[in-house]
C-alpha cells in the first residue's frame, strides 16, 4: 500500500520560495493501478520523486507498505521518462536488467531466470545481447520496464514514461503496461499529462490542481478490465470519463491563470 499524507514540498532560493506541492493526501491500495494527471508544471515529477525517496518532502509523509519513506524504499521501482538516460549505455540490455538484482544479492541462476522472464514479458526475448543505443526509443523504454519487473517491486512508479515516443509505439507500450500489471499484480502509480492515457490505463484517475498542488478529485474508472485501443477508446463511457477529466483539468488551469494574474 502506498500512503501519502499531507505531503508538501517547497523549493527555496534567494528570498523566493516556490511551493511545488501544496498539500497532497492520497492512498493507493495494494495491486491498484492509479494514474495521476494534472496540468503541465503542476509538480507531478516532484511528487513522484518524493514517493521514490529521491527527494525529501518539506512536510507530511509517504509510506510504502507501512514504512515511512526516508530514502529509496525496498520493493519500489521507478521507470523514468528519459529512457535514453536511465539505461547504462556501457552495459548490454541483459546486464542493465541484471545490475539491480546484483545489488539485491541474488544468485547467478536466479538473476538469469529473472532477466529472461522480464525480457520475455516485454517482448524483447532476443535483445539481451544488444546495447541500449542499438534499440529504438520504444524498445529502450521496454528494457527499462523489464528492469523494473525483474526487480520484483511491490510498487512501481512510472514518470510520464511514454512522453517521448511516437503515437503508434505509445499505444503498444500502454497495452504492455496493462498486461504487465495484470500478470505481476504490483501496485502501479502512473504519472502522465495525457488525459486519454490516464483514463485508458487506470482503475482510478487522480487529478491534480496546478501549483501549489493538491488533489482535485479521485475518479474511479468503471471501464471493463479488458481494455482495447479501438473498442475502449470509442466506448461511450470512456468518452464521458475523459470529458470529465478534461473539464476538471481545464478548470484547474484556469484557476492557476487567475491566481497568477490576481494582484
Amino acid at each position: 500500500m502506498l500512503e501519502i499524507r499531507s505531503l508538501r514540498k517547497t523549493y527555496g532560493g534567494q528570498g523566493r520560495t516556490v511551493e511545488a506541492l501544496g498539500d497532497i493526501t492520497l492512498t493507493v491500495d495494494d495491486g491498484q493501478f492509479v494514474c495521476v494527471v494534472g496540468p503541465s508544471g503542476c509538480g507531478k515529477t516532484t511528487l513522484l520523486r518524493c514517493l521514490g525517496g529521491l527527494l525529501e518532502p518539506t512536510a507530511g509523509e509517504v509510506r510504502v507498505s507501512g514504512q515511512v519513506v526516508t530514502g529509496p524504499p525496498d520493493g519500489l521501482a521507478i521507470v523514468f521518462q528519459e529512457y535514453g538516460r536511465s539505461l547504462f549505455p556501457w552495459l548490454r540490455v541483459a546486464e542493465n536488467i541484471e545490475l539491480p538484482l546484483k545489488s539485491k544479492g541474488l544468485g547467478k541462476a536466479e538473476r538469469r531466470t529473472l532477466v529472461d522472464e522480464s525480457l520475455g514479458a516485454v517482448g524483447l526475448a532476443d535483445a539481451g545481447k544488444a546495447y541500449p543505443w542499438q534499440l529504438s526509443g520504444g524498445m529502450q523504454q521496454r528494457v527499462a520496464i523489464a528492469r523494473a519487473i525483474a526487480f520484483q517491486p511491490k510498487v512501481m512508479l512510472m514518470d510520464e514514461p511514454f512522453a517521448a515516443v511516437d503515437a503508434q509505439t505509445r499505444a503498444d507500450l500502454e497495452d504492455l503496461v496493462r498486461t504487465v500489471w495484470k500478470r505481476f499484480g504490483m501496485t502501479m502509480l502512473f504519472v502522465t499529462h495525457d488525459i486519454d492515457e490516464a483514463v485508458y490505463l487506470g482503475e482510478r484517475v487522480v487529478m491534480l490542481s496546478s501549483s501549489p498542488t493538491h488533489v482535485l478529485e479521485n475518479l474511479d474508472i468503471d471501464l471493463p478490465s479488458e481494455r482495447d485501443q479501438l473498442k475502449t477508446r470509442s466506448d461511450a463511457r470512456f468518452v464521458e470519463l475523459r470529458s470529465h477529466v478534461y473539464a476538471r483539468i481545464q478548470e484547474a488551469k484556469g484557476a492557476g491563470v487567475l491566481r497568477e494574474t490576481a494582484p
Binding site: G53, P100, K102
Partner: peptide, 9 residues
C-alpha cells in the same frame, strides 16, 4: 537517480 532508486551502492 536510477542507481539510488535501485539501491546500487
Amino acid at each position: 537517480d536510477t542507481c539510488r532508486s535501485y539501491q546500487i551502492r
